[in-house]
Design a protein around this nucleic acid. Structure first.
Lengths: 194, 194
DNA sequence: TTTGCTTTTGAACGCTTGTTCATTAAATTG
DNA sequence: CAATTTAATGAACAAGCGTTCAAAAGCAAA
């Protein structure tokens, strides 16, 4: 046997990435073999190398795509007040992350399995995202709407708190996403106000 | 060569656990080989099996010890008000975790590398810790000191926020631990108050 | 100094790992 | 229908994996 009937790179390529995403999220990068990914796709291990130069690139591409998507979709409307921008941010962060549990899990857990160069790239993107939130906080402090001692700490505290939603939230659970957003916005709003 | 001069189980045993802790935290359970742990200790891989039945037990023991220590040291003084108890909790959580970055990292990252039974044990301990915080929140709501819509969500949000400190805090950095505690307590206090 | 216990070595076990590549067959193009 | 391109197989590679165990050697007690 060689090429199989119906095989096409436009189909197999995305399936390889989807399988890697799913399995990396479930078992961890180091614990998932190329053969396991291939089996999930329904192909032999060798065929994966038509779609990725190596296992590391597979991980890096997933993380980079996730981070650039995150940055591209982050709301940014200078006409709105700092309070409104912060509310937008909270709603966006929770919704975006709730939609992508596997990507989020990988982006947090597999940083240490990146090569040094790849890690630097992802780290820069993550920092860019944090800076966006910190800018909102600073604007709010300047306008007198927020009262926070250290914008950097509050930035990290808010992101940690919001990302924590992913450890328990499941669509169709006890609370709707809107209710979750409302409750977290309530906490964040109070925490940054005098 | 066989037994080496100066070898003693009272010395090697703790060194095995320390090496495993360090390497698991650094590289991840799946990526760390028994030979790598042995090399860190300065023995051959076979010698490790005098101290652990297998690699899985090494991980489980580290996590279980961490969680039972956490529960044993959690402050609990029924004479104090809910607000005081919450403040005690925040200070304790940040300090305890700051002292044990490797243990904390493992406890969060390596859950999926536990067997089903071992996972259940650790999960129960984690749940017990969460319940302690939730009880404080409920007492505060009952006494009218706190205003939170859903104590379970606020519990998880607070723990996520506090544990996030470990991703950036380093002893001897820009902020002292007391300053960090003070800032987080300020945020938590405001978030749970009307 | 001899005896028994403790601790480690080092080789070996079968198995899995990421990756390469000649080969083959399906799909596409002319 | 023929020629070319694309996509997959499946075997092979060297290396590493967790774990076992007989043998050896240091240590402690008699």
């Amino acid at each position: 046997m060689a090429r199989t009937t119906g095989s096409h790179s436009d189909i197999t390529g995305p399936r390889v990435r989807a399988a890697a995403l799913r399995l990396f999220a479930r078992g961890g990068y180091a614990a998932v073999s190329m053969r396991a990914i291939a089996a999930e796709v329904g192909v032999q291990a060798g065929a994966l190398y038509n779609y990725t130069p190596d296992k590391q690139s597979l991980l890096f591409d997933l993380m980079q795509t996730h981070m650039t998507d995150l940055l591209a979709e982050t709301p940014s409307d200078a006409d709105r007040t700092a309070v409104q921008q912060l509310q937008d941010f909270v709603a966006f962060h929770i919704s975006f992350h709730a939609d992508r549990p596997d990507e989020v899990f990988i982006a947090y857990m597999e940083l240490r399995n990146l090569t040094e160069e790849n890690f630097a790239v992802i780290e820069r993107l993550r920092r860019e995202y944090e800076d966006g939130l910190e800018a909102i906080l600073r604007a709010g402090v300047a306008s007198g709407d927020f009262s926070v001692a250290d914008t950097k700490i509050v930035t990290l505290a808010i992101i940690a708190m919001l990302t924590g939603v992913n450890t328990w939230y499941r669509a169709g659970g006890r609370l709707s996403l809107d209710e979750v957003v409302a409750q977290y916005w309530d906490m964040v709003r109070k925490a940054v106000t005098a």
